Simulated assay, not measured.
Amino acid sequence: MKLSIHHTTRYLYARPVILQPHRLTLRPRSSHDMAVLASSIDCSPVAQMDWTQDVFGNLVATAAFTEATDQLVIASQLRVDQSAAAWPVFRTDSAVHSFPFTYSPDDAAALGALCIPDYPDPQGELENWARAFVRGEQTDTLSLLKGLNAGVLGAISYRVREEEGTQAPRETLALGSGSCRDIAALFIDAVRRLGFGARAVSGYLFDPQALAGDPGSTHAWAEIYLPGAGWIAFDPTHRRVGGDNLIPVAVARSNRQIMPVIGGYLGAPDDFSGMDVSVEILVEE
């Protein structure tokens, strides 16, 4: 399935400001189930782009600006061929069929901090919540993960949250609601407390059932590493497993490391007057 993705971010300022360098994580890499056919990023005012790869291998552009402006527009265009199976079969190594299991020394060393929770849990609330999904001393690993992935929405309601940043998992549990990035962060921290290697993913969600004119959306989800199957996508916001209809752009230990646009300006706090983001995802005939 070939998709065309148009993602535009616009910042408005009350008066011309000096833009500091902006970090743009908007260009994905090709993988076994997604080929990047074309990509471009355009900025207004025009920026000098320097490309690099971060510690996770994500493609990152640093945009440097030379002129003052009262408006910044960053427009990303992608064409991808997404071929992830709608009903995937995950062939994991026999050693990890049952939970609990232990990663091999090489895998454990490579996963490192991806197995370590990112948020404090002094009273053990989050760990107790996660372990409530474990049925017995030995349980099927994939069934456990699928149950937890589906069970998040039993405790949490999805809501659009415009504020920047990610809620701490304990806060999400206490509030009983959160955005997709909050729900993903809760899921990631929960599975890490069970010993799994997990990472955050940012990208786009394509909904083929959406009404005509639905623009599409940015999205956040998780991936868990299981030897034999590799990195498996878990989307607790939609109770889905596998990469079908997901377009990953970047992966990292936490959401804050893969925000699509990070940058600032030199000026007074009230110089900033607003921003808007639009995403359009179209199926190519």
Rank of each mutant, 00 (worst) to 15 (best):
V249N: 04
D271W: 15
F206A: 01
F90W: 09
A190C: 07
D244A: 15
S278L: 09
P120L: 01
F206Y: 14
F101M: 08
L194R: 12
E127A: 08
Q82H: 06
S98F: 04
V36P: 07
F99Q: 07
L144P: 08
L126H: 03
A68E: 12
I18G: 02
T9P: 03
D189E: 10
G151R: 07
V46W: 06
F234E: 08
L205P: 00
W231V: 07
I281Q: 00
N128S: 14
G228F: 00
I116V: 15
D244R: 13
A113N: 10
T8V: 15
S157T: 13
C43T: 15
L26C: 00
G243Y: 13
A75N: 09
V201E: 05
A63I: 10
S83R: 15
T218D: 12
R79A: 11
A174C: 01
A184C: 10
A108K: 11
L114R: 09
V89R: 13
P248Y: 10
C180Y: 00
G195F: 05
E171S: 10
A185Y: 05
S179H: 00
Y225T: 06
G136S: 11
Q48A: 09
D107I: 15
D42E: 15
T139R: 07
M1L: 05
T66V: 14
R193T: 12
L173F: 00
D207A: 14
S177T: 01
R239T: 11
F234Y: 11
A113K: 08
P88L: 07
G176Y: 00
V134R: 10
A150V: 03
L226M: 06
V249C: 04
A200N: 01
A75Y: 01
G267F: 07
P169F: 08
E164P: 04
V96N: 01
L194C: 04
A61C: 11
R79S: 13
Y103T: 12
A168K: 09
E67D: 12
S98T: 13
V191S: 04
